[in-house]
Write a protein that binds this DNA or RNA. Structure first.
Lengths: 337, 337
DNA sequence: GATTTTGTCGTAAACGATTAAGTTCATTTT
DNA sequence: AAAATGAACTTAATCGTTTACGACAAAATC
């Protein structure tokens, strides 16, 4: 490995001069600097990120919290898209990405310790149990953090516009003549709470009566539970004309149940998904759904975090809400009112 | 941040003593060591991975190459599962995971340089263009590597058993009475080549005639192209009785085409997928498919890499083939022969 | 009792980079 | 002509660890 010392010997100058030349500091003569740069280049010099991090206290490395246990983690396209764009943007800004977990080797440490151990300049928190004391400890620490789809006090976060999404869906469905709209929601999380609240608010907007039985709980990304909820909805004396599913993938469960009962989409039942993953766009009939802009969310998260890392003085917590798009498919029938 | 120096002051011993005590070296008295450990604990000491890496030349950090552009990258459950188990196992072994890319900040570097820059002890290479000169440079470097689903000379690799998988599928389909088996394969990669070769070999085993038109090219993870291939197959004067798809997800395209033509699965056409992703298990009829054991692959990759990192002397390149499982669904009809 | 061994602990030099402070020497200012 | 300025480098300390080597006393050996 070629170091500053090697270059300094080769050039007959001091290490300090080489360092300053390569970093473009002003107190090195132009020709010396050029010469040093050319030699460094010829010798294939690469700065040592580790040494730099030790000296500067800045690692140019950001941690990411993704928990696998709860929910489906990376298996969900939403999260893998976020991770990918986060990675791309972070790299563009000069930061690498390292996963943060609770244990590393024989040491069992919490997230905060792991992040400190690795000298992470900041951490992006996604897809975790936000009530976990270890998560809270991290968020309350001095390490810059950005959370996804959850907000802590005095911390930046990037949120998918669940309120707007749900509202758009209800409006769309209503404008297509539907008056009996059922909603199968996911397990109790802040995201779910927002969607439920927004659902009721939007219904109220149109003076829609929502029977209690029309709102049912299921589990995200779990077609089986959505299938059961669908069966219950279909068994109601006054069937809904449209069912909103917790997400595109779990809609498969509803689709199966509908087909089992010989009902066709959208003629016998209209349906709407959520997420806008690839799957929704290749199903036939194409699923009407609300696409979350995961790409922007990951990118924004990286930008917010790096801003905070690089301008700790002027930094103020920011909440960024990322808008989504209603993707109109052919799963909602237009009813005559 | 509490350092060795802080502890040494607090304990009234030298830094070296503290270091040795905490690392369990034998030349520190038992009570001194215990005292130091208790103080370190009380003060909340955390070793600094950066300083350690600089001193030891071992970062306990492994890089991972995942390219997003080509194919669908992390969006594919296969890869996200691999990534996850790789991460879990690496962490169990005491290693963190960092993504490696071509550019970082304003510097544009190749994979090798990036890995060196970050002092990665090794790199796992997955889901990339293995013909990329930058990938080849990395593989030919002194950095330990493990590749997934591709083998380089004198390098370890973890392979999904594509040969065995295809063989099992053909045997299963044949044993269910099918004699006209079509195969839609993915784009030209080493994985595809193995599957095609194995397909022909297995057919030969049973003296099956495979008309040229029965083997068609499509693109992995692309339902549209598989849909087109399906349409072509259905238009043949002598239709196959069973279609093998490149993967579970792209099967959706075939399913759409079949439904469009009013054909039902498996009564009018039998189908088989590949991968065994969640989707395949929730579709109705349940898809018969070959599940790749991505979890084991990721784990094995981590183990192989760490072995090589920690025992560079005794190390020899290893090829590990990970077996999969045929998941029997209800998408293959049993024909009377 | 003199010498060697053993058990503990300290000193100091690394690892590769950055940077405050100091040095040298030519040039400008007064 | 003396002093001040400034450009161009160098010296040396530092970041937090690890570790070869040395030091010293107590215990063991002869």
């Amino acid at each position: 490995m070629v170091t500053l010392k090697d270059i300094s010997k080769e050039c007959g100058v001091s290490q300090a001069t080489v360092s300053k030349a390569l970093n473009g500091l002003p107190d090195i003569g132009e020709e010396t600097a050029n010469y040093i740069r050319s030699v460094a280049n010829r010798m294939g010099y690469l700065p040592n990120a580790t040494a730099r991090a030790l000296k500067l206290g800045i690692s140019h490395n950001i941690g990411i919290l993704f928990v696998d246990k709860t929910s489906c983690g990376l298996k969900h396209e939403y999260f893998s898209e976020i991770l990918n764009s986060l990675k791309v943007e972070a790299e563009r800004l000069g930061y690498d990405i390292t996963f943060i977990s609770k244990d590393i080797g024989k040491f069992s440490m919490d997230y905060y310790k792991h992040a400190k151990y690795r000298n992470c300049d900041g951490v992006v928190i996604a897809s975790v149990d936000f009530k976990d004391p270890d998560v809270i400890r991290l968020v309350e620490s001095e390490i810059p953090t950005v959370t996804l789809d959850y907000t802590f006090d005095s911390r930046s976060s990037v949120l998918s516009d669940n309120v707007g999404g749900m509202q758009e869906i209800v409006r769309y469905v209503y404008s297509n003549g539907h008056r009996r709209i059922a909603f199968i929601h996911g397990e109790d999380t802040s995201v779910t709470q927002k969607r439920i609240a927004s659902f009721f608010k939007a219904c109220e907007e149109f003076d829609l009566r929502v029977p209690e039985a029309y709102v049912r709980a299921a589990i995200y990304h779990d077609p089986r539970s959505s299938g059961l909820a669908t069966r219950d909805l279909l068994a109601l004396p006054e069937r809904p004309t449209c069912i909103l599913f917790p997400d595109d993938f779990s809609f498969i469960g509803g689709k199966n149940e509908l087909e089992r009962q010989g009902l066709s989409i959208p003629d016998d039942m209209s349906v709407v998904g959520y997420d806008g993953i690839l799957l929704s766009q290749v199903l036939r009939p194409k699923l009407t759904t609300f696409r979350q802009d995961a790409e922007t969310m990951g990118r924004k998260a990286a930008v917010l975090l790096v801003e905070q890392i690089e301008n700790p003085k002027s930094w103020l917590p920011q909440l960024v809400t990322v808008a989504g798009t209603l993707l109109e498919g052919h799963s909602v029938k237009t009813l005559q009112v």
